[in-house]
Structures are given as C-alpha cells and as structure tokens.
Nucleic acid binder design. Structure first.
Lengths: 210, 210
DNA sequence: GGGTTTTCTTGAACGTGTTCAAACAAGGGC
DNA sequence: GCCCTTGTTTGAACACGTTCAAGAAAACCC
C-alpha cells in the first residue's frame, strides 16, 4: 500500500516534489513506518523498476511472436521499451541521478538489480534466438548481454533526450539497429574473425575483476 | 576562497560528509554568503571540473608532443586522463550522481559545461591532427567529438570500476584503442564508404533537435 | 488466560541544503 | 557631509530525509 501510494504520487507530482511525509500521510501511516518497510526513499523506486521491466516484456511480446527477422525484432523491442517508459520521461529524469550512483542499489549494474537485469537480458536472448539470423557461435554467447548494453545506452540517451516526444531517441534506434544488424551478419565472415575475437576478448578482459 | 576551501574539504572528507556549514565556517563566512556566490552545493563542483580539464591537458602534453602514431596518441591521452582523475576516484563516485542528472548544469552535456567540453574535444582534435594517420575527410569533421564521446564512455566505466586501482579501466583503454584505430584506418576503404556514411548520417539525425 | 518475545507503529527530534528579510558596506552624485 | 543605490553579509528559519526510544499489537508458549 505504501509502495502503490508512493509510485502514484511520484507519477503525479514528480520524485523530488513528493515528500516522505506526504506519502506516509496519504497512505495512512506514520513516516517512521514507511522506513520500517523501505530503507530509504530511493528504495521505493525499485518497485518502479520491476514494474517497468514487466511492462517491457508485455509490450515486446507481439513483436517477438510475430516477427522472425533479427533487425525487425530488435527494432520492435527497443521501440516497445521506449513506448512503455515514455509516460515517465520527466519523472525518470529526476530520479535518474539516484540510479546513476555507482554504490546505489538502484544502479542497473548492482546486485540488487540483477533479477530485473537478468529478465531484461532474457528479452534480448529471445530477440536473438527467435530470429532467422545466422550468428557466429562465439558471438551467440555474448550477444544478448551486448544487446542489453545497447539498450542501456539507448535508455541513457533517452533520459537526456529533450526533443519533443523524444524523437531523437526514435531516430537513434532506427539508425543504430541496421548497423547492429549488419555487424551481426558480418560476424560469420572469415576475414572478420580476428576482429570479432578481439572484441570478445576485450569483453572478457574488462569483466575480469583483478 | 570559498571554492578552494570547499574543494579541499571535498577531497579530505568526501562530498556528502562536507556540509555547507562546515565549508562556510572554515572559509570564515556565513553560510548564506556561500550561497551568494554559488547557487548550490553542486555548483562548487564546477570548479573541480575545470581544474581536472586543465590537468588532463597538461598530463597529455608529453604524449601529444612526442608521439606521431594515432593509436599511441589516443592511448596516451586516455591513460593520462585516468592518471589525473585517479586520486579522486572515491570522491568522483559520490558526486557523480549530481553530474548525471540531465537537468543539472554539471552534466557534461549541459550548456554550462560547454567551455570545459570544448576544451576537452580540443585535446582529441589535437590527437587526430598531430597524427600521421590518413583519415577520411568526412570522418575528420566528426572524429574529435566521437573520440570525446568515447572518453566519456571510458570515464563512465571508470566511475563504476571497483577493481583495485581501476585496472579494468586500463584494460578497457588498451583493448578499445586498437579497435578504434582499426576502424579509423578502414574508414578510407571504398567498400566501407556506405557504412561510414550511414554512421555519420545517424549522428546528424540524432543531433537534429526536432 | 497469563507471561514473554517478536513484530509493528508512532511522532518527536536531528542534521542537512537552502532561503530570506534584515543589516551592513561601498561607492556616486550633489 | 548626506542621501540613494547597489552590492555584500548575516544567521535564524524552513522543509526535507532519516533516526530512534518508546509504546502498541501480535504471536507464541505453557
């Protein structure tokens, strides 16, 4: 009940303008009680994350069910992601700062976010596996995560996008999907094998934590 | 005087643990006076930005003066950037959130940051122009900005990098520079012209603000 | 039912960034 | 010298996120 109230008020009045006192009052509890269930105001946003992740899955379903071509699948899923987030653009901008902090549990790379992250990567695995594209086997292992990373990039761009209705983000998606599609298609060419290896090796190196 | 005091205290005790009251007291003024000269606590960080930008320029100079090869120049400049930022890694992580907010004047994309941004892009123009690399003329126009964008990406990675001495960031630089070098070299190949055009057109489309 | 422990709930209080009316200082014109 | 304007400086006051000692309710045990 506290969570629903909070998310509704965030949507209506923005994150910064919604005080914990107001949330508690509206939910009919004492302010201290809200802190009994949620460690901080930021933690209330985690619920928003999960909700958005589920909505993306739902919005992407028609595309994933009806389309077999890799580029069309990817494009559809990315646009679907922007679709579901669109109503929250101004809200997202105000709380993005808290999600951006590396030590925050709200960071998309944090351990607390890993369920939502894994689910999101799953969508992009679906994009790949349900498509007719022939993909280099070494690339197949990492591609879902790479696509998720691209999605994070698109999201980052979207947060900063101040154009009307975030049209620049739409253009970014339409422009970048063919490039990714082309690169993925080229991945099986023998001449580009060394380059691909180089990229994947870089990924492994960068992930290594020592 | 207020600015110097603030930056020193940020460095010594971290951003969050340094209160405006403490800064004012240490600087020998009333707290309201600090707000007369700086709109907010965040604005005190702009001075830090400018300082870092200058230090990067200085640290990059030996490389830019002594090295002619494109890859070596880029690699040296990126490592120099990490070198000067290294002492402030934990500090940077705590105030990064305020810089990440799209509407914040501290955002690297904001108008207030444009002097520092232009200066930084200038470094990468120098990387390009001082090198012996033969670069497609269409690419030449945009490459400095693209390299700056890559530098922003490296910085983003660095902020999130929790490995000892941020070694992963070092590996990222060493791995990504050869890739960029290869791409830049390939940019003049006739067969890749359409792909390059596609990328540059995407950039223009995305920049267009309508 | 009575006693004990655990879970939940409360709201005053703390420290924070920030604001603002009021006071003070520095010129500038005559 | 005196007024007026403009630029500075002050610190109390405000609203906020958060904490915590204290109490209420629930669950559990015999």
């Amino acid at each position: 009940m506290i969570l629903e109230t909070a998310l509704r008020m965030f949507r209506e009045r923005g994150y910064a303008d919604t005080t914990m006192r107001a949330i508690a009052k509206e939910a009919g509890v004492a302010v201290g009680n809200a802190y009994y269930y949620f460690d901080s105001k930021e933690h209330l946003i985690q619920g928003f994350y999960d909700h958005m992740q589920g909505a993306h899955r739902v919005a992407a379903a028609p595309v994933l069910d009806g389309e077999r071509e890799f580029a069309a699948r990817l494009r559809g899923v990315l646009h679907a992601g922007i679709d579901v987030n669109a109503p929250y653009h101004s809200f997202a901008a105000t709380f993005f700062k808290t999600a951006a902090e590396p030590t925050s549990p709200l960071s998309p790379f944090s351990r607390q976010s890993s369920p939502a992250r894994d689910a999101s990567i799953g969508i992009f695995r679906d994009v790949m596996e349900g498509s007719t594209a022939k993909i280099d086997p070494e690339l197949r292992v990492h591609l879902p995560e790479l696509l998720w990373l691209a999605w994070m990039g698109v999201t980052l761009f979207w947060v900063y996008d101040s154009s009307p209705e975030q049209r620049r983000t739409r253009r970014l998606i339409d422009g970048v999907v063919p490039l990714i599609d082309r690169l993925v298609g080229l991945s099986r060419l023998r001449v580009l094998r060394p380059a691909l290896r180089q990229v994947l090796e870089l990924l492994d190196n960068v992930r290594r934590d020592d």
